[in-house]
Nucleic acid binder design. Structure first.
Lengths: 337, 337
DNA sequence: CTAGGTGCAAATAATTTGCAGAGGC
DNA sequence: GCCTCTGCAAATTATTTGCACCTAG
């Protein structure tokens, strides 16, 4: 039931020029055992229970040390003091903060991130970090219920949502290439679309198995609310592409171009998210998928260029022929004159 | 050159049960004269220059008073202390915060807000307030330039962007109804589309004049960066609608439905933004426009229902006729038998 | 005349620092 | 043995409060 595992290679994370110490180990472990967002004081209380000879100053110093080691992240919920959350294998995220129970809920939205990046770009601002906090009242508080303690780590939620998005993308990719096969005229292009369609089918199965495996690790994982919000790939990219294939006058080249757009979009998305996470299941899923999409992308681009070239050649040949026949006609005219 | 005007009706904003005082007036005016985000300490320094007999405590108390009066808003940039920004005629907004020069830049994005609302809804979270802060380096700092002091108040920027969006919406609305006129078959529907198209033309002129008027108030206003980011209405709503009209098989009812969707979307947008602002030019523009869109919306809905009814009636008549003719045939058959 | 408003000094609250002794490598 | 870690107490920083006096309505 998903308790936080002690960090296996804590030693490797130790910032340069720092030594081990039993007190620090105690504090770090107390922090890691805890879920949620602790204030320095919460941590002091926890520590005092195990060893009341540890001073407040040491806790503060250890908190700073954990930040440097990448284990903890300082967050500010506007309470006039800082809280700390895990950052080891825990992606940066946004917060819904309940002013009633002071609990906070995490989420990630690639759509919000994309918009923030756009705004920053429009103002020529180099963004290093974004904070999105929504203050209000949580479901449990407004219904007067007890909030159900979330037992799933956000590492697992991230992996779950990564898989869900990957699966949705595969599905719509499958549909896209399936439709493409029926549409394209060029035999070679048709072969390519068929190949990609079958690849998507295979990969879809793999992903679905992986999803089932993940669910086995935590029974309640599937029913937990969405952590990663994303409209792009699943509802957007490929399904828009499939939609576009349905339009009139889509020739083989256009079909390739649409495919390229879709693959590029999903490659970017998966790469970007994969990279923002330290080694973990979610990261692996995203990066593998990004790689897959990159291969498709490159294949499509290669084939697109090929087809353009072939088109150009046959156009040249037509032009050549017609110019030859023109010359012949001119000759004939001259002769008849 | 847009210096902050003293608030004309400051007296009316005074929270219940508070008295006037010369010290407070002094502090409030010092605050209003200043642009940007002041810390309590900045304000104390400013005050001390005019009267060094005013104590820190009074400044804090006045800051609290200004919050209650709706003149100041407390913001937290994670510096371990609060800053205060104007809130009179100044919409809630988001921040880009430069860690190098400690300046902060304001923006508003209805798209981000919409996404935040979606996330909150998905988690059944009642959002009361959202904070979006982007930390990084501003244009001026990364280029090693002096930042150009922004002389335009965000009241004017908001009005400018409100007008720009309204104008863009009118333009695409105009295009939508223009195309609609050519498309719909029913003569009455055609009349409606024509009427709406001409209305949009008229209103567009009014808005453009208003925009020119606004620019006269501050020469540099037009070149200031975007304050309100919005893709929906201008690039999204009506232009998507126009796009949809272009598809095959759009009949009169479908055309109405698309129009209804567009008008509803822009009505909602303008209403929502109009409401989030205290009485000001930007608010007026948005609310007037929202009203306009609501009228169009209602007209379209009324006409849509009318047309549905007429369709149904004529369908009934056809059915009646065909059943009559069936009976006639049956009779004939019986007679012939 | 009475409920605010104000200055001053002291309180609070979170966090940091100086210093002397303890402990890891 | 040297450099880091730790506890303790004192310092620092932003903000709030108690209290005696002042002032607007």
């Amino acid at each position: 039931m998903a308790t936080i595992a002690a960090i296996p290679d804590l030693d490797r994370l130790r910032p340069a020029g720092t030594k081990r110490s039993s007190k620090r180990d105690l504090i770090v472990n107390a922090f890691l055992k805890q879920e949620g967002h602790l204030s320095a004081d919460d941590l002091v209380d926890l520590i005092k229970r195990e060893d009341h000879r540890i001073s407040r100053a040491t806790v503060y110093r250890t908190l700073q040390w954990m930040e440097d080691a990448g284990i903890a992240r300082k967050v500010d919920f506007g309470e006039g003091r800082f809280r700390f959350e895990h950052s080891y294998r825990h992606p940066r995220h946004f917060h819904l903060i309940c002013k009633t129970c002071n609990r906070s809920y995490e989420f990630l939205s690639s759509d919000i991130e994309a918009l923030v990046e756009e705004v920053a770009a429009a103002r020529a601002f180099t963004a290093r970090q974004s904070v999105v906090q929504v203050y209000g009242t949580c479901d449990a508080c407004s219904a007067g219920r007890q909030p159900d303690e979330d037992t799933s780590t956000s590492e697992m939620l991230f992996a779950r949502d990564a898989l869900r998005i990957a699966i949705a993308t595969e599905r719509s990719g499958m549909e896209f290439y399936g439709r493409g096969v029926k549409l394209v005229k060029d035999p070679r292009a048709r072969e390519i679309f068929r190949k990609l369609a079958t690849e998507e089918v295979h990969h879809l199965k793999t992903l679905e198995n992986r999803y089932q495996e993940l669910l086995k690790q935590d029974a309640r994982l599937e029913s937990r609310p969405t952590f990663l919000f994303f409209k792009g790939a699943a509802n957007g990219l490929f399904s828009t592409g499939t939609e576009q294939l349905r339009r009139d006058g889509v020739d083989d080249l256009e079909a390739y171009r649409i495919g390229i757009r879709c693959e590029r979009g999903s490659h970017r998305f998966f790469k970007r998210y994969g990279e923002r996470f330290e080694d973990s299941e979610g990261k692996r899923i995203f990066l593998e998928f990004a790689e897959e999409e990159r291969e498709h992308l490159e294949l499509l681009i290669r084939e697109y260029r090929q087809l353009v070239k072939r088109h150009r050649i046959s156009a040249d040949q037509r032009r050549l022929k017609s110019s030859l026949s023109k010359r012949a006609k001119a000759k004939a005219r001259r002769q008849s004159a």
